[in-house]
Amino acid sequence: MTPMIDIVFLLLVFFVCVASDQVVEMTLPTELAAGSVEAKLAEPQETWTTEIRLRLFVTPERPTASIEMNGRTFNDYDQFQQTLSALADVSRDSPVILDIADEVELRDVVSIYDACRASEFESIHFAMHKPAQKKKT
């Protein structure tokens, strides 16, 4: 009986040590438009709401990305989030377009996308500039 208990305890210690080192990974899903590169925005309707264009860019003055929403620059992230939530309360079907500069860090990209999802917007798009040399199939 004693060797069995020894081994069981060794196993227990091993898995406790291994498990404690692991970071719990979760998922932030996206739904990309399939079949074509460009996703068509919804056709304008009578109850059309303006699109929300979020531009993320980096300036030499600020270490984190600056946010510009429809021409208005936000320096405070909480203020931006409140404005976004207020806009979502008015119309959740407004398309949100994320225009992100190449230099922006992924943490800021995920943070903005996360804020849009938290505000429960129905359609969130990533703006892309298609390379000229690529052929459309």
Binding site: E25, M26, T27, L28, P29, T30, E31, L32, A33, A34, G35, S36, V37, A39, L56, I100, A101, D102, E103, V104, E105, L106, V109, V110, Y113, D114, F126, M128, K130, T137
Partner: peptide, 23 residues
């Protein structure tokens, strides 16, 4: 983002709808 953008583009081009970020 410069490294993420081409992945999103290629996925859209390949018709892959399920793209997720590990967070």
């Amino acid at each position: 983002y410069e490294l993420v953008k081409p992945i999103l583009m290629a996925c859209a081009e390949a018709g892959i709808q399920k793209v997720s970020f590990a967070v």
